[in-house]
Each structure stands twice: as C-alpha cells, then as structure tokens.
Simulated assay, not measured.
Amino acid sequence: MTGPALPSLDAASRRTTPHQVFEGLDLAVRRRLPGRLQGDRRGLRLGPGTEPEEVVRYRPGEDDVRRIDWNVTARAGEPHVWRPLAEHELESWVLLDDSASMAFGTVDLEKRDLAAGAAAAVGLITQGPGNRVGVGTLTGDGLRWSAPLPSRAAAQRALRDRPVGGAASGPTDLAGALTALGARYRRPGLRVVVTDAVEPDGRTERPFSWERPLRRLAVAHETIVVEVVDPRELALPDIGVVTFEDPETGRRREVSTSDHRLRTSYAETAAAHRAAVAEAVRWARAGHVVLRTDRDWVRDLARHVLGRRTDRHASSYGAPRPQGVTA
C-alpha cells in the first residue's frame, strides 16, 4: 500500500488532474490525523494567549485579575497569577530538493512526485487561521522561492506546480540552500527539508556539507528532514547485466547484478549511507522521517507527526535552543 496516487503527469496519466490528486491526498491526511490538524501548537514567548506557562506573584495594575491562580494563592498566602504563552500564526517553509537524482522511481511514483506530495501534506497538516506555507525549490539551476500562501492553497500549489520533466543536470548545493533559507526567513516557525540526501559527488560518509547549516536552522525553528527513498536504492535485484547512469553526473557503467558480492556490497554501502544521514540529522537536532515510494508514505508521515506531538518540547513550533550549539 503506497497511499494516495501521485502519478507522473505524463501522456499516460493526464486523466488524473492535480485537483483530483489533491482531494485524494486531503482525504488520506484527514483519515490518518483525525482531529489533530489544528490547535496543537504552543508559542515561544509570554504574551496574549490561552496556554498557561508560568505562575508569578500578582502585580497590581499590571496583571489581569482574571488570571489569578486560586490554588497557588491559597497555598502561598498571597495572590499569584498565571501568564500564558503568546499565540502567533504559524509560518512554515518547505525546502524541496528537485535535483536530478529525485527523477527516479521503480514503483508507482518517482521520488520527486512523493516529494511534491509531502510538501502538499505539510500544508494540509499545518492549516489554521493565519497559517501560511512557502516553498523553496532547489534544482541544478539554483534556488527558486514561491511566496507563502495560506496553508491549504499552498498544498494545492505544491501539487499543481510539481515538476513534470527532468531536473536541470547541474549539481545542487543543499548546504547553500539551507543557509539561504535560514538567512531569508528568520521568524520562528516550521522548516521542512524534503530531499533524498544524495550527494552530487557520491559521498556516503560523514561529515556532509549540509550538517552544520541544518543545525543552525534547527536552533531557531522546528526543523524536520523528510528523506525520500526508493527500494532500488537500498538493494539490487538479480536481473542480469544492467547499464546504470549517475543522474547527477551522467556517467554510465555496465554491471552484472547476478554477482552476489556486488549486490551484498551495494546493500551494505546503501545501509551505511542511510545510517550516516540519520546520524547527521540527529546531530543537527532536527526531526527525521523516511518516506519510501513503495509504502504508504502518508501513514508514515502521520505517525511521525503524531509521535512528535506527544513530546511537549516538539509541540512548540520553534525548537528550544540546544545547549552547546555553535551557530
């Protein structure tokens, strides 16, 4: 089961319109997150709001008498009031990796289709009064920004404007894109990075160039890395002689997949790479969810969202500043 269909918009699938895809995704998200799409967010600082944060001594003329905590007042013998956290609209930004390696898929959809669906799901999950979502798309031609829209409209745009052709063949700079995102939009909010974490030079070991920019981003915002994976990137089937092409460089190589040692080495290298990516994301203090093209990715994303919301610290849309982090 792979969740809502997000077929490539080629000649064989033009009968499926972006609107139909959006309605299917909307229904899938609502089924997996019933009653949890709104109102589950805490502010960062004291101010107008409804969520109690701390109890202090009452100051005549400054504090609202309607917020007197009578239980604490009775125990302390003097008036105390509770102060709430300020409630603000949520501003979310999705950094969408559309490098050449994302134009790959061996199941029902390509990784770039899943990435567009994940960006749309972010809009649906974060919808609420005043909430907005913007998108930065990273290709070989550089970084393109789309102005933030109300969450639901942003979700529709993510599906409507998803790429239908090949990405630019040039290398992409994920580290530079993360730095640009942190410098361009400083207001605390949610930042989601959707990528396959494939390095242009084929590097599979730490440190990755994007680790430190990601950590700086996670200092100021709640940050989630959505890693997109296809099953053929994890293990090779025994299908004889195959010609492989590196999507980032265009280099080709003919290999025999019947070689057991080759398949074993490939699987071990792929597993080590994914483990290194997970370790790097943990080091950066960011959330991490892996979405696969051969699984119900909406369910996996929903599980991650629900899991983070059970954590009191993760419920804030701005992550607390980790100790010992050098920006």
Score class of each variant (00 low, 15 high):
A155L: 00
G77Q: 04
A76M: 14
E233T: 01
L27G: 04
P79H: 04
R212Y: 09
R32L: 13
V122T: 14
G166I: 01
A275C: 11
A119R: 12
D64K: 08
G250M: 05
N71S: 12
L90D: 01
Y266L: 09
R36T: 03
R206E: 15
A276W: 05
P148C: 08
A147Y: 05
F22D: 07
L178V: 06
E110S: 11
G140E: 05
V289M: 10
V107M: 09
G130N: 03
G142A: 09
L114H: 08
E62Y: 10
T195N: 07
V56K: 12
D230F: 04
R263F: 12
H260K: 10
G142M: 08
A121T: 05
R232K: 04
A168T: 03
G35Q: 03
V325N: 06
V290I: 12
R303S: 11
A175T: 01
D97G: 01
L33N: 05
A177G: 05
Y266M: 09
S256W: 12
H288W: 11
P237R: 06
R321V: 14
G287S: 08
R285C: 13
I224H: 02
V193L: 14
L138H: 08
V56W: 05
T243A: 04
R253H: 07
H80D: 01
R59E: 12
R312S: 13
